[in-house]
Amino acid sequence: MGATIPASGVSVPEGTTPALTSPASHIQVFRLARYQLRDYLLSRRFILMLGIVAVLGVILTSVIGYYRPASLLGTSDNFYNQIWAGAVTVVIVFAGVIFGGDAIAGEFQNKTGYFLMGLPVKRATVYSGKYVAAFVSSFVALVAFAAILLGNAAFYFGTGAFTVAFLESFLLAVVYLLALLGATFLFSSMFKTSTYAVLVVAVMFIFGFSIVQALVAGLIKIEPWFIISYASPVIGYPFDATIPAHMVTVTSMGPRGHTTSFTSYNPTYAEGVVIMLGYFLVTAILGLLLFEREEFT
């Protein structure tokens, strides 16, 4: 490096150049997230995510517009409960897989981690910065989806579409997103190959949790409070006049006089929120601990 390049800082004697003090870690988290976000927003994965939102939006809009089911178009609460509350969890799961699935594993596989690890940053900063970027990207997709549904609702209900219940439900969806991304990041930091990480995250969130949830409730007959997807119906609760009963047991008479009983559970409102926040906290802590111990071999 010739003398053509101005040395950093004020005129300090050569060779005694003081090291630059790095910014506080929380500032680094947001600076890192900013560049990570720039990478996400310009990448194909973001276009893919918006594409999924658009496809879902087009299908919902045209099906509702064509059939105009009366049950749906009675009140905006009804509309949101049946359309938004279910579909938004799909959007959130896709966002989790697309932005979270390879977030950590990709740093190893693509060797971008070696670029970051040469910098004066804590491992937790890298993890958190990536989390913030994935969260913001997913949030943008969530807002886009909410806007499509609000637009539809406004078409049928006018200003009656903009309800406090919807805002409440949206916030619950954001909490669910926090939790789900936390869990995908944890899965992602268990792998050093992106494909495995994405595959495992996708399978777990699309089938895994609901199968386990059904098994736990149906066979072991306990409340599956430790399964993240169990909490997701809470997103629809703001639209319910009465929240579903916590435990429903259906007993039926079998062929030879056997009785079989089937119990299903619904989370209470508070329980649902606690499960989601709990998932966020526990997975964040576990993921950070795991990443703290990972080597860049």
């Binding site: 971008t112 910098l119 804590k122 491992r123």
Partner: peptide, 18 residues
């Protein structure tokens, strides 16, 4: 690691950039 690496420029294993 954070403070130790402040004084360093590091290039190891031809990393990839986003």
């Amino acid at each position: 690691r954070k403070r130790a690496l402040e004084a360093c420029g590091v290039l190891i294993e031809s990393p990839e950039i986003y």
